[in-house]
């Protein structure tokens, strides 16, 4: 499972951080930092919730 974040699309709204704070954080520049781009399978539910919650669809999950 691999997380891809489109920082040009990101608006820094933080829903990903709300859903999965171990994997996403709004960084100093106000846009998403992916803290761990290759989460272990056991975290799939939270990471998927974060990807789905993005108001501007800036996150993708592969694998």
């Amino acid at each position: 499972m691999k997380i891809a974040a489109d920082v040009d699309t990101c608006q820094g709204l933080g829903m990903c951080e709300a859903m999965a704070p171990d994997f996403f954080e709004v960084g100093e520049d106000g846009y998403v930092d992916v803290l761990d781009a290759a989460p272990a399978e056991e975290h799939r539910k939270h990471v998927m919730a974060a990807v789905a919650a993005c108001p501007v669809s800036a996150l993708r999950l592969a694998g």
Binding site: G14, P21, E25, G30
Partner: peptide, 10 residues
């Protein structure tokens, strides 16, 4: 305060 708000949300 984009860095702060979700930490307060928790």
């Amino acid at each position: 305060r984009q860095r702060v708000v979700m930490k307060l949300r928790r």
